[in-house]
């Protein structure tokens, strides 16, 4: 079957411009929304290029609100804009737009339940070399703890585009976690849309289920392919929405497969693994392993190497599955 993916000529313009970077796909999608809807505005904290808003700024200069390096102010202003009926998209670095402006996010946005979309670029350890000040490994825990908040972790640039467009139909605040200045492998098709709150089963399997989000979806698929060669049939679920959490595929995985491994580029506290464990503890206690960042600050280094050091890689996911199933690593 031929799809748009196979035919670069037919691919929409945004695909090339996003260059497989979810942060750019977000900015392009906000620009697309701004072209459709005059109530769409972007609030930048000196993050115009980080998040692909240069084009919006050129085409709709009055709707690009630059507040400078002042995340608290960005968040409060976004809330005020939303009260007047505008649709603000706040753009920032994940570590700063969550933690620095957390009280504004909690009070002005979540508590006051305003329709504000937050695009958080450079999440996880996508800025590996930048060190702990610039790693965002607790943002999902912070956002997930806020009532009214929808939390989305696109698996790639394509999904970031569709997720951003889909916020058009959501009320209340939305957090969209985005990658850094590196290419992200495409794991979802260009034409796929996203149903926020409804996970995608990317690969069926009956022995074990890997539930992954964001940057760890591609490694989860890689691990599943490796495991398959060992005769282990792994289901892979892309849990792109952490909140509201899609219960059915998790409970089905617990009932139908031999255990669950979660995989995320986030602390093991309070993120995807926590969300899945909370659900299963209540409704279907299951054997689990969690792949993610242990309770320490990550070392400095190239992103892939730092991820792998803490098991956030295909290798690490495969090891977690084998451990869960009581199987040992194959001899090298």
């Amino acid at each position: 079957m031929s799809t748009v993916d196979d035919d670069p000529v037919a691919a929409p313009d945004w695909v090339g411009r996003a260059a497989n970077q979810s942060r750019l796909a977000f900015g392009l999608a906000v620009t697309e929304l701004a072209a459709r809807d005059s109530s769409v505005v972007a609030v930048s904290a000196d993050t115009l290029d980080l998040i692909g808003l240069r084009d919006l700024s050129d085409r709709f200069p009055e709707r690009l609100i630059e507040v400078g390096i002042a995340e608290q102010n960005a968040m409060g202003i976004a809330s005020g804009l939303a009260t007047t009926g505008l649709r603000p998209f706040v753009c920032g670095y994940a570590p700063f737009i969550t933690a620095r402006s957390l009280e504004q996010l909690r009070n002005d946005v979540a508590y006051a339940n305003q329709r504000v979309v937050i695009g958080a670029a450079a999440s996880g350890i996508s800025l590996g070399v930048a060190g702990g000040t610039h790693h965002a490994l607790e943002d999902l825990a912070l956002m997930r703890a806020l009532p009214n908040m929808t939390v989305v972790v696109p698996a790639d640039a394509h999904q970031a585009w569709h997720a951003t467009l889909a916020t058009e139909h959501l009320d209340g605040p939305v957090y969209i976690r985005l990658g850094g200045r590196v290419e992200e492998p495409a794991v979802t098709p260009v034409v796929a849309s996203i149903r926020i709150g409804q996970a995608d089963v990317l690969r069926d399997g009956s022995d074990v289920t890997v539930i992954a989000c964001g940057a760890l979806v591609a490694p989860a698929l890689e691990a599943a392919a490796d495991l398959s060669a060992q005769g282990i049939d792994a289901r892979v679920v892309n849990m792109h929405t952490l909140k509201p959490l899609d219960r059915d595929p998790i409970l089905a995985a617990a009932a139908e497969t031999g255990g669950i491994v979660t995989a995320e580029e986030h602390h093991l506290t309070g993120g995807l693994g926590g969300a899945v464990a909370e659900l299963l503890a209540r409704e279907h206690p299951s054997r689990m392993r969690m792949v993610g960042m242990p309770d320490e600050f990550a070392v400095v280094g190239p992103t892939d190497r730092v991820r792998d050091r803490y098991g956030m890689s295909g290798r690490g996911i495969r090891a977690a599955v084998l451990d869960l199933l009581g199987r040992s690593e194959p001899l090298a």
Partner: peptide, 10 residues
């Protein structure tokens, strides 16, 4: 005050 800025800008 930040919220007020948003309202005034709105």
């Amino acid at each position: 005050l930040a919220v007020g800025i948003g309202m005034a800008l709105g």
